[in-house]
Amino acid sequence: MTDRLNRFLAFWRHFPGAKVINLALVIAGLLTAWALISGSIDNPDRYLPSPLAVAASSVDMLYKGLLPSYFGDTISRLLLGSLIGLGLGIPFGLLLGLNRTVSDIFFPIMNFFQSVSGIAIFPIVVIWWGNSDKTVLAVILYTSFFPVAFNVLSGVREVPLRYIHAAYTLGASKFQVIRDVLAPGALPHIATGSRLSIGFAWRAVIAGEMLAGREGLGWMIFTGQDADMTSQVILGMLMIGLTWIVLDHYLLRPLEADTIERWGLVQR
């Protein structure tokens, strides 16, 4: 009996579709638990609508075109803010890393700002610019700039001095040292920092839309609560989590793994 069980388990471990089926089973279990809890409480529409009710509300919002429009707003904000943040943060980190004294001074300052999260600077930005798109964008930009800049800076500081010296003795200019030594040497940190930055920016977009927005997924959650439409709140939460998983799994992680594993920078 145990022999047959072991043989089945061995087969299952190597069965290509096993992972997907396992995941589907876990999700089915969670949905069932959710449905059971929802069915056993009073007034589920207010406290915990059933999965079916959430699905119905998503169909409704899809039909009205609200869901795609909110989703598009949020994604375009994320992309705009974080791409500008990365575009400024990566070169900034590289430049600071060029000079040891400068980077020693800036290291704690960058560490300070990367720890003050976007949500913590929201109130002051609202004081400056009110509840506007500009405010939301500024916070996303801030949130994505510092983690990547800080990571790139620490990456550059870890590039062995002998690589830099070798390039200079081959006749490299400062720009060529950045291009050929510091940037590739810090590439694993650039990848990790970018992933972190986009992750933080994703949180900041939602928070920003809740606090200062007029549309988007964060706004959708916020107005759902206001209008007593709990299924809309849960739908918003699901969208946030699912979008991140897709973004992370299909874009950010492969990018990171690729750069880190090439060249044997990390020995496997």
């Binding site: 010296h165 070798a166 390039a167 003795t169 081959l170 030594v181 044997g264 920078l265």
Partner: peptide
Amino acid sequence: GVVFQEHAILPWRTVAGNIGHGLEL
């Protein structure tokens, strides 16, 4: 030109890429 104590060739460049680096610069 300097040949350093420890390995100072760039790990992200191939042998040919390292050897030609000076000419590239």
